[in-house]
């Protein structure tokens, strides 16, 4: 993939790192209908998002099609320092996936 589907920011402040991730994904529920044909659009959504810090999982997110298109996720954890790595990766119900690393910014 030439361009990552994830936009990722991580900032540390007062000993807590806040991570914000914006993924681009259609997030089809499987209940929407194609207006022209009347057929249901098959479901296609991110099922799992995993956030790791220094190789340790800090959050495991399970989603349904009830999460908005181009989903946004924000979480925070204690610790983190400028230059350390946070990774966010997603996988969807059709076997698609993507992952992205970002360096934490800010002072402790």
């Amino acid at each position: 993939m030439a361009k990552s589907s994830i936009k990722l920011r991580a900032k540390v402040k007062n000993g807590v790192t806040t991570v914000k991730a914006l993924m681009s994904h259609p997030m089809e529920t499987g209940q929407r209908k194609n207006k022209k044909t009347g057929e249901k659009i098959p479901e296609h959504f991110i099922q799992e998002v995993v956030g790791t810090y220094n190789g340790k999982v800090v959050i495991t997110t399970s989603w349904s099609g009830g999460v908005s298109k181009d989903p946004y996720l924000s979480f925070s954890f204690k610790g983190g320092a400028n230059g350390e790595t946070v990774t966010v990766s997603w996988s969807d119900n059709k076997g698609g996936s993507d992952t992205k690393d970002v360096k934490i910014k800010g002072k402790k």
Binding site: K56, T60, T61, G65, G66, V67, P71
Partner: peptide, 28 residues
């Protein structure tokens, strides 16, 4: 969960030990 949705369960977050109990997302 969104109580009035056809499938109310929207998102579930499993937190690690150091993770702060504060999550945000956008739902339908």
């Amino acid at each position: 969960l969104a109580a009035s949705n056809p499938s109310p369960m929207v998102a579930s977050f499993a937190l690690g030990e150091t993770t702060v109990a504060d999550v945000s997302t956008r739902i339908k």
